Amino acid sequence: MASFRARRASAIERTDLYQGITDRIIIQLEQGRVPWVQPWDSAAAALDLPVNASTRARYSGINILILWSAMIERGFTTNRFLTFRQALELGGNVRKGERGMTVVYAHRYTPQQERERAREEDRAPGTIPFLKRYTVFSTDQCEGLPEDLSAPVAPVDRSLILPEADALIRATGADIRIVGGEAFYVPSRDYIQIPRPEAFPEPINWHRTAFHELGHNAATRIMPHGVVGS
């Protein structure tokens, strides 16, 4: 019975949390904003995958949308986040009055009682899903952190992108993510990744690469079963 109550409580909490996130995304869509598409003008920092400033682990799942949205709405200049306690452990602190973002951690665990019962019954132990909420803060909201953590990630240098090319790229409606060290198109998730313009010896090469990957994007829409991104 206790196991059933734990599962039910976890399911209700997970549903409530996911519903809140879904409602927020719907509001953004109704306002004409697409939170998971690279908004070149509105973000103060390049939208690299959010990362925990203390553990260096990248956030995943719904947490990416939550933190990207926060970066855009609140103008954070970095993709690094950490908890209140982690800020203290690093010798800094969250500034008084700062409002954090709720992220989630979902996993499963096996109670000791279930382990013992399964051992007696010679079967695999069952597991119970759980969901934890954490409040995280941008390193922009902290003070006293080590210099390498507090230094903001430089925004994309838009002066290296020709206005005419920029306009054409926008007109395609493609999801282009200017991050990482490789350029490719992912048909299954319908997005393009391309390194930042300053990573190219000549700006023209960034444009060539961007339009090459846009060609894959366009071809997939015309021939969805016969194109491989590269």
Rank of each mutant, 00 (worst) to 15 (best):
V156P: 00
V153P: 00
Q141I: 02
L67T: 07
E143Q: 08
D122P: 02
R74L: 12
N93F: 12
H107M: 08
V94E: 08
W40V: 09
L160K: 08
D140K: 03
I64V: 15
K132H: 14
L47A: 03
Q141P: 01
I66S: 03
Y105G: 11
T55H: 02
R119S: 12
P146E: 00
R158H: 14
F81M: 04
I66H: 01
W40T: 07
T55A: 04
R117P: 04
Q38S: 14
F81R: 09
A70E: 09
A70T: 04
Q38F: 15
P146T: 00
S60R: 15
Q86G: 07
S60D: 10
M101H: 14
I128V: 12
P155I: 08
N63R: 04
V51F: 04
D122K: 14
I161V: 14
D148N: 12
L90W: 04
N79F: 13
C142Y: 06
V94A: 07
V103A: 06
E73Q: 15
T77P: 00
T83V: 03
Q113P: 09
P125V: 00
K132E: 13
R158D: 07
N93G: 14
V37P: 00
N79D: 13
V136D: 04
R74F: 14
S150L: 02
L90F: 05
D48H: 12
R85V: 06
A118F: 04
A43H: 02
T77A: 15
D122M: 09
A44L: 09
L168F: 10
P155W: 11
T55P: 00
P155G: 06
E116V: 15
L67C: 06
G144V: 03
T127W: 01
N52K: 02
R170Q: 15
H107R: 11
L65G: 08
S138C: 06
V153M: 11
A46D: 02
R158Y: 10
S54D: 10
E143N: 06
F130L: 11
R80W: 05
E164R: 13
D41V: 00
V103P: 09
T127N: 06
I161C: 01
A165S: 15
P111Q: 00
A43Q: 01
L90M: 11
G97F: 10
D166G: 07
